[in-house]
Design a protein around this nucleic acid. Structure first.
Lengths: 217, 217
DNA sequence: AATTCCGCCGGGCAAATTTCCCGATCTCAC
DNA sequence: GTGAGATCGGGAAATTTGCCCGGCGGAATT
């Protein structure tokens, strides 16, 4: 075990070379493979099983997001650090959704890349300061779940519904008419824009409406 | 470093005393602190940072589970051994979920407690033989998801449905009649015993039917 | 005080869906 | 070849949904 094995994926050889130098100057880090495309990245990953994969978002062919998903599908534990020029929180969110553990923009000082690699190799996360700031701002201004337009009663009924209770039982538990609960059900779907009961369940989950006792029965 | 430092948490002073004697008779073990409540346990833990914490589940106030979670939140590496009268696999599961590393019932011979403390101090786990047997039996008899009686088509439709797709869209995607999908929907509910669409979603989740791309949209 | 607004509660009614029932294939194993 | 079971769909009754409405009570505005 001589340090962390790193896979470098970037379609620009010059950039790759520069960062390979930077990385290999660090004791404990070594580049074990390089790739230019999403397909190559996947191949190289399977061959080398690196500890950390550093990956650019804009790859020819399938694209960086696809590469992340593909690799993560093969190895759920893959530690992928996105290192890219896209200075956009939206991109970062997509990357994290695809399974990346870190997102560093190329405008960051080299030391930040090194720190990120080390953080990720230990199972942590890492985000560029600029992206983090943007995300934080978005959180603060735009803390809008599709569910917070709901009244207390509506939220209560949604919780029971999402937990798997039948409409009738909810009505009984709340001393309401069956019709009322049905109307709430409809109202909730209208307000949230859910077109499906299952959709509604997911909203309730992601809004944290359910306690730890989610699985019914 | 003269042996393992132990924190003893139990609301019953007599029991505490008895086991303190037992423990201190062992070379290499010593009790460095005792506590009666969840809050005291947390305080004592922060003060002493014991190697192993022996903790009863039924504490006045917050309760044992809360205490485990609280301590583990402060110190992810805390080694907590639950030592309790509750001879129930369900309780044990809850304890492990909360972050305990061992679960020994008070009906066990004292030697088992000592062995458990030593096992846990070395980073291992420990379960009472009776609880282990109960859990194993549960696995063997009850290793049956309500979903594995479903055919491939049924499972496929369930997956799409649980992901939030409308019946009509499923039919279109699968080149089936709307009516057929409706019938599958009904069939699935009948086979699984789900009385509610939301219930069905939970089943699909716990059966691992959904990929990571659960949240719709 | 009067008025307006808004959340809660439910009726009504057409349209849609669910719930069961059924039959037709097609495959596969015995 | 016969029975079992998965797949696919029609039909009819029962329920639910979608949408609109009205009443009640409290809080805020005027």
């Amino acid at each position: 075990m001589s340090g962390l094995a790193i896979l470098l994926v970037d379609d620009h050889p010059v950039v790759r070379e520069g960062y390979r130098r930077l990385i290999e100057r660090q004791p404990g880090l070594r580049v074990v493979a390089e790739a230019e495309t999403a397909a190559e990245a996947y191949e190289a990953y399977r061959r080398c099983r690196p500890d950390v994969t550093i990956l650019d978002m804009s790859l020819p062919g399938a694209g960086g997001l696809e590469a992340i998903r593909h690799i993560r599908q093969w190895d759920k534990g893959a530690r992928i650090l996105v290192f890219t020029m896209h200075q956009s929180a939206a991109f970062a969110v997509k990357a994290f959704e695809a399974g990346a553990l870190g997102y560093i923009t190329k405008t960051s000082p080299p030391s930040e890349l090194i720190r990120a690699v080390e953080a990720i190799s230990r199972g942590g996360h890492s985000i560029s300061a600029d992206i983090a700031a943007e995300l934080a701002a978005e959180r603060l201004t735009n803390r809008t779940s599709p569910l917070d337009g709901l009244g207390v009663r509506e939220a209560e009924i949604l919780r029971m519904f999402a937990a798997g209770m039948e409409t009738e039982r909810i009505a009984a538990a709340l001393n309401l008419s069956l019709k009322t609960v049905q109307n709430y059900h409809y109202q909730i779907k209208a307000k949230t824009g859910a077109r499906t009961d299952a959709h509604l369940v997911w909203m309730a989950i992601s809004a944290g409406l359910l306690a730890d006792d989610c699985p019914p029965q």
